[in-house]
Design a protein around this nucleic acid. Sequence first.
DNA 1: GTCATTTCTTAACCCAAATCAATGAAAATC
DNA 2: GATTTTCATTGATTTGGGTTAAGAAATGAC
Lengths: 189, 189
Amino acid sequence: MDEVIFEFLSKYIELTEEEKKILSELKFIKSFKKGSLLLREGEMSKECFFILEGCAYSYYLVDGEVKVTEFFTEKQPITPVSYTTKKPSEYYLECLEDCIVSIGSQERTAELMTKMPRLAELGPAFLEDELASQRMKYDTFIKLSPEQRYQNLQKQSPELLDRIPQYLIASYLGIKPESLSRIRKRILK
Amino acid sequence: MDEVIFEFLSKYIELTEEEKKILSELKFIKSFKKGSLLLREGEMSKECFFILEGCAYSYYLVDGEVKVTEFFTEKQPITPVSYTTKKPSEYYLECLEDCIVSIGSQERTAELMTKMPRLAELGPAFLEDELASQRMKYDTFIKLSPEQRYQNLQKQSPELLDRIPQYLIASYLGIKPESLSRIRKRILK
DNA sequence: GTCATTTCTTAACCCAAATCAATGAAAATC
DNA sequence: GATTTTCATTGATTTGGGTTAAGAAATGAC
């Protein structure tokens, strides 16, 4: 289980056995049932998450309509905007499946930093990665038509298509479920 | 002229007179004519920019068609993705007006850091701000219809509408100039 | 100033996605 | 295992943006 965390961190720094031990001891893990809300609109986010198992998604509710902005699966960190800005969240974070999640907080991160100072090094690199992928996401959305976006998703993350209900995929692509259904039909020919 | 830079930096740290002097000495300023390209697709970006005067924009060329992703005006920093990733740029950066620009490079930044170590503090905060605004940009785009996006732009940055040709605004909003023209007419009633 | 180019608007027609409605299939609940 | 509820598909219709083409208005060049 801890391996999932180590694997993620190894993208940024090589962990010593000592450090792995510290992480194992200090980590805080929780399970959530499918449909649980990790964060509500209007709520202040005091926690950030790291998915060990399962799948979650973020969405806005714009006059009653769900607008999905992201899916998160194993090995993915979730840092809500509200967590960094310290303002109420404008979107929801919900478990799409039963989830096992490692939960971070300001305090726990601070404690971890003192016991393992090297962890601070990874901050800017992580932020840069997040920024780059966020920009890419926007740019791809701008550049492609709904149909191309679907094909792009199919190519980039085929797992998601098997795992996530189609009406949520549709929302993520910025279209209605009926339209996605037709796009799929169109492509099959 | 330097004031513009100081004002920007004061969002993150208070500058001493000493530090202002260092900045004034080390800065590197250049002028560009309207239409100059600060960065080309396929090119490696070795520079980041800070607009002192004028206006620039970034755009993709997707089979011959311009897709605007951002406008930059006075007091705005431009950090091309290519500058951080060290991969060839996928988009263009062009001056929309005659521009006066402060230009940063890896080397000059390093030199500045040694003479003014406190500058490093601002790094993560700046990255966080960029990330937050990039996310907001995406989310706003997702949530709103073209018409709402125009009204949102009108409310958030009315200056841009007076300053930037409509066909580029249209591209930025993800629609064609003709459609923007129609939307404007629709709204006037 | 005149001429040329760029930018903006308008109109007619086209098309993809939205909407509305109905039906089936699949899952969740009991 | 029967019953709700949720999800996916399909059809008919509407709507808003795309396309094409023309002319008007603004801007720039000489």
